[in-house]
Amino acid sequence: MIAVLRRLGSTVLVLLGVSLIVFLLLQLVPGDPARAVLGAGATQESLAAVRAQLGLDKPLAVQFLDYLGGLLRGDFGRSLTVNQDVSQLLLPRLENTLVLTGAALLVCLVVGIPLGILAARHQYGLFDRISMFVALAGACVPVYWFGLVLVGVLGLSLDLLPTSGMYNSRNPGGFEDLLAHLVLPAFTAALVPLAVIARMSRSVFVDVLQQDYIRTLRASGLSEASILWRHGLRNALPPIVNIVGLQVGYLLGGVIFVEVVFGWPGLGQQLYTSITQRDLPVVQAGVLFVAVAFVLVNLLADAAVGVLDPRSRRAVRA
């Protein structure tokens, strides 16, 4: 119970720190942020207006408290380029990003973990060597490039799958249309974390299979299936869940590239557009959203480990 409270307390602290860093991002802009936003030809009045809108005319500490207060009220500022509140602009896109990330995560779990387990089962065998080398190479693939290759080969040359957007623009279908549009981006986003999860699942599993209790189970005549998928998986799961939680971070980062390549109308694509337009409030809020999502996912992962592991606290040997 105390451990849970401590964990929650540290999460709050981390979130506070996160908002401070996101706030400070604006201070990192070389020179006058207002000029950076408007460009060299801006008039004094418009500069002053932007400064006032960003709150730059007040002392730093006051600015931060204002910012924090705004966040708590759900006010993330106003876009400088689109006449819209940032939250209005970003929330629907966040939803789209979560759809894509969720689908990619599903691919990672369904393919990555079993791959790692099978490799561990045949440790040093041919399957292990080949699949783990491929996974290492997969972990090195530039996502944006892989996306382009898929667009080129499967989309443009073979015309198998849609390569852009979430729905067919002329004839938007329902769930099926969404699924078809999801395939390429989800697989692209999943590639690197999948490879990492496979490699780490393998090493966790190799470790588990060497434990004394596995030998006890074998000596009790249990089937390999039960040893692998019941006892092995059950014991490997807590560290694997932690690993997956951390890999969601890479997924959330990589999704930015994927959304740009596949024209997926999510947070990442908006972030990209706003960066090019130097729409700093949108960039700030976008970064904040993703970071908060990542922190919450890891909180969830820790909670899951607490539930999964009867000893509740076990060193993560990943």
Binding site: L20, I21, I256, V287, F294
Partner: peptide
């Protein structure tokens, strides 16, 4: 810990 809250690429 605070810096770790941001995905690396982001």
């Amino acid at each position: 810990d605070v810096l770790f809250a941001f995905p690396l690429v982001l």
